[in-house]
Amino acid sequence: MTARLELKSVTKLFPSGDGVSGIDFTIRAGEIHALVGLNGAGKSTLMRLMLGMKRPDSGEVLIEGVPLQSLDPRRWSRVGHLIEYPFAYGELSVRQNLVLAARLRGMETARARQVAADIITGLALQKFAERRVADLSLGNRQRVGLAAALQHAPDLVILDEPTNALDPSGMIVLRDTLLARAAAGAAILVSSHHLDEIARIADRITVINAGRIIGSLEPGQAEIERAFFSLVSADAEAA
């Protein structure tokens, strides 16, 4: 499978000493790659580096072989992401927010309206479509954020804790959507604390600890949480 996104020896350290160092990482077309780690392990930093929200101290981030700093801006129209907060403005309705997000991905207004309508159905948001986002529950705001990240059929998807605040039905809808997108050829990276949920959909699971990649887990393996903590504990003892 082709590497749609690749990190080569990427290091980003903050004055506090936290950060990530020497990271080699790939997200391939047609697969769901999960990134797991404890709080503060460096998952969010890594994802921010992939999206240009942070610049590496050293190393390279490449999308289809092109370094981010040289990337044609139009390439970003095929990337979808949700990092930390849903991209949704409280004063706008769900539909208005989605049209706005699609417009920012370069779509004409008519096309933006169409993809917004499609994702509203796809993620079961019909009931809330005309409500202001400020009036929605946290879980439904998260759904709006996911809709904004996925509506334009991106071929590279980066989601930080996408199941945050989702109810069980939301988690099922998200799982089915991600599996369908990966089957259609999208490269997907998700981070999550829900190892069981990850194990159900991921093709690869990479473990990060203290800013370094320390190993991987088999999606189908039994006792995945125990295996995760064994890896992390062994790393902490070795450090």
Binding site: M53, P73, H81, I83, E84
Partner: peptide, 11 residues
Amino acid sequence: DGTIAGLFGLP
């Protein structure tokens, strides 16, 4: 509002 992250990674 935390929407700044959504303004990265766009055309």
